[in-house]
Design a protein around this nucleic acid. Structure first.
Length: 476
DNA sequence: ATGTGC
């Protein structure tokens, strides 16, 4: 994007002033270089989002923002139900509650290296990955509804992981207000065999080493030290979330028309929060959140079983689990007052600052762990929600590197086999059912995650805590 | 992201 289109609020904050149909300004966080590298579509989509009824404060884009369906990926927008505010399926994204969780292992990098090959093969054998992959579980109709209501809490009750995990998951592992009856039979059918599976695209399970610590006090609070081995799991709600998105998008196109909302782009289809459809979507979307939380909980159990075979002494406690595709009702300070708002985060991570009541006591003074997934073969990051974040972008930060080129272009430039070999030569073992998928996810197909994280830190969205480098990657 | 799609 051309930086001249923006009014610069600070070195890392760029305002697109409200004009035309925009009700509020757009705000993009990032360095000049990141703004210049962004597709013009990000500004266009931000302006479109800013025109939706009931939007509060501004339409935000994080430093990793790129062109998405209707809303930009890396977008944050909050709506007030009392002012005609809306909820949008495209504003949440198709992979509802896609997110990242991080596990400690207590192992050292040297211990990992000695058994890395065997661990890679074992994890690949135990973790179902790829398009249409199925797990060991077959949910009955009643089991499906219990899962959609209970999330990770349901998974723990079913024997996956421990009660202690729940305190380190957003919402205590169980999103309230889920309505399984609002989820179509088709969505449930697609999910029946897919619990405990990774899926495809940018989803992965990675064994990583803490490469560098940037804030010793925060790292200690989170239990991270340089040279330690951790496990990252990045995935979402699989076929169920996708089907919910598809189902409600169709209904919202019609509903927006009927509500007299003049959409600048059909992909912004939405429904008033104070409507039967808006409420039904929220119920279905929250069920989708629980599906993703349960899925990551089961995958955690599978990872622990694999580790136990090779490293019987290892324990894998959960550091944190946070989603980056949601719409959540939260209280935020706007101007002089505090308001209940429905915050859409699409490819944006919740990043509550120090003192927030929803954080577990052991992290409350430090701020929320913000887990940033890198692209394959590059770094991942642990950040901490910053003190000022809540007033800037409704307590949000970036979620990853963001694509630098299309999947099509990546396929043209690389062969999966070569990507695997080159990474192996650098000590990074990839195990994937799809060479095509590996080529699409080649490291250079993504922007530099370090630059994105630096921009988020400079913009005051989150503090840098630690950088993680991959050693084993199970790729969907 | 996705029982990947013109």
């Amino acid at each position: 994007m051309e930086p001249g289109r923006f009014r610069q609020r600070g070195p890392f904050e760029w305002e697109l002033p409200a004009s035309g149909r925009m009700r509020v300004p757009g705000v993009v966080f990032g360095s000049r270089a990141l703004i210049e590298a962004m597709d013009d579509k990000v500004g266009e989509q931000l302006a479109n989002v800013a025109s939706l009824p009931g939007i509060v404060d501004a339409a935000y884009a994080m430093p990793d923002a790129h062109w998405g369906y209707g809303f930009p990926i890396g977008g944050v927008a909050a709506f007030d139900a009392d002012e005609g505010g809306v909820v949008s399926a495209g504003g949440v994204g198709f992979d509802i509650s896609c997110g990242v969780r991080l596990l400690h292992t207590g192992l050292t990098a040297a211990e990992l290296e000695a058994d890395k090959q065997r661990l890679a093969d074992l994890l690949y054998a135990r973790i179902p990955a790829g398009v249409g992959s199925t797990g060991a579980l077959r949910l009955s109709a009643a089991g499906m509804d219990a899962m959609l209501r209970g999330g990770a809490r349901w998974a723990v009750a079913e024997g996956y992981g421990s009660v202690a995990d729940l305190a380190h998951i957003e919402e205590g592992g169980c999103m309230a207000g889920a309505d399984p009856a609002a989820v179509s039979d088709m969505a449930k059918r697609r999910q029946r065999d897919e619990m405990g599976t990774l899926g495809s695209g940018n989803h992965y399970l990675e064994v990583q080493v803490v490469d560098e610590v940037f804030d010793a006090a925060l790292a200690e609070t989170y239990g991270l030290a340089a040279g330690e081995v951790v496990v990252s799991i990045h995935c979402g709600s699989r076929g169920l979330g996708h089907q919910i998105g598809t189902d409600y998008l169709r209904e919202m196109v019609i509903a927006a028309q009927e509500a007299g909302i003049d959409l600048p782009d059909r992909e912004l289809a939405c429904a008033p929060l104070k409507s039967a459809l808006g409420q039904r979507y929220l119920g279905a979307m929250r069920a989708g959140i629980n599906c993703a939380l349960a899925n990551r909980q089961i995958l955690t159990h599978l990872a622990r079983e694999a580790f136990a075979e090779l490293f019987p002494q290892a324990r894998l406690p959960l550091l944190y689990d946070v989603s980056h595709n949601t719409c959540k009702e939260e209280t935020h300070r706007v101007g002089d007052g505090r308001r209940r708002l429905f915050v859409h985060r699409k490819g944006a991570t919740r990043a509550f600052g120090p003192g927030h009541a929803e954080l577990p006591p052991e992290y409350r003074q430090a701020g929320q762990p913000v887990l940033i997934g890198g692209s394959m073969g590059t770094s991942s990051w642990v950040l901490a929600g910053a003190a000022g974040t809540g007033e800037r972008a409704f307590g949000s930060a970036c979620h990853g590197a963001g694509r630098a080129m299309s999947r099509h272009e990546a396929l043209r430039r690389w062969h999966g086999r070569n990507v695997v070999d080159e990474l192996a030569a650098r000590g990074i073992l990839i195990r994937s059912p799809s060479f095509r998928g590996v080529a699409e996810e080649a490291p250079l197909a993504y922007k530099d995650v370090g630059a994105v994280v630096d921009a988020a830190a400079h913009a005051g969205l989150a503090e840098k805590v630690a950088r993680l480098v991959p050693r084993v990657c199970i790729k969907g």
